[in-house]
Simulated assay, not measured.
Amino acid sequence: MARVVVDIMPKAEILDPQGQAIVGALGRLGFGGVSDVRQGKRFELEVDGSVDDDSLQRIASELLANTVIEDFTVTRVQ
């Protein structure tokens, strides 16, 4: 078994209202110096040896991420 991490973030040109809300909240709570926040998603998958890298890319692009507005990375963690 192996652990695979899929990190998904909004593309740079996409507005991130949740990230903007976090920046505003940080300022109101007295945390200065933070000028931008981008909020994403993280998925952890346990896979067996039969799941190859191409399949993981398809899982991420077809099910986990909306590739029109999100970028993703797939990483096998040992």
Rank of each mutant, 00 (worst) to 15 (best):
E44V: 14
L26Q: 11
F72P: 02
R3H: 10
Q18W: 08
I22P: 06
F72R: 00
S50V: 08
G24T: 14
I8Q: 08
D52N: 15
V37W: 06
T73D: 11
G40E: 02
A25C: 10
V5N: 08
G49T: 08
S50T: 15
A21H: 08
D48S: 07
D7Y: 01
L15I: 14
E70H: 06
I69D: 05
D54M: 07
A12D: 13
L29A: 10
D53Y: 13
A65T: 02
G40H: 02
I22M: 05
P17M: 10
V4Q: 04
D53R: 15
Q20R: 13
G30S: 08
D36C: 04
E13K: 07
E46N: 08
V23A: 14
T75R: 15
R42D: 04
A25I: 01
F72V: 05
I69R: 08
V23P: 00
I22H: 04
A65K: 00
V51S: 08
D16P: 05
M9C: 03
I69C: 08
A65N: 03
E46M: 10
L29G: 05
D16I: 03
A60Y: 01
P10Q: 05
V5P: 01
E62Q: 13
E44N: 03
M1F: 10
G32I: 05
D48K: 10
A21V: 01
I22A: 09
G30P: 01
K41R: 15
I69E: 09
Q20G: 08
L64K: 01
D36V: 03
V4E: 01
K41E: 11
D54L: 10
A12C: 02
V5G: 09
R58I: 05
S35H: 12
L26N: 05
A25D: 10
S61P: 01
D7W: 02
T73Y: 04
L26P: 05
G32C: 02
P10R: 00
V23L: 12
I59V: 15
G24F: 05
S35P: 00
G24L: 11
V37T: 12
I69H: 13
D53T: 10
G27F: 03
A60C: 12
D54K: 12
I69A: 09
G49S: 14
V47R: 02
G27D: 13
V34Y: 06
R3A: 12
R58W: 02
R38Y: 06
G19Q: 06
V77F: 03
T73N: 13
S35W: 04
T73G: 11
Q78N: 14
I69G: 10
R58G: 04
P17I: 04
L56Y: 07
G40K: 01
E46Q: 14
V6T: 06
V51H: 04
D71T: 06
S50M: 00
A21T: 14
D36G: 07
K11C: 00
D52K: 07
R58Y: 07
Q57S: 11
A12V: 13
I22W: 03
A60L: 02
V68D: 09
P10F: 07
S35G: 15
L64V: 02
L64Y: 03
Q39R: 10
A2L: 15
L64E: 02
S35M: 11
S50H: 09
G27L: 14
K11H: 03
M1K: 07
T75L: 11
V23W: 06
E46T: 15
R76V: 13
I69N: 04
Q20W: 00
G49R: 05
K41L: 11
Q57K: 14
R58H: 07
S61D: 07
Q20H: 13
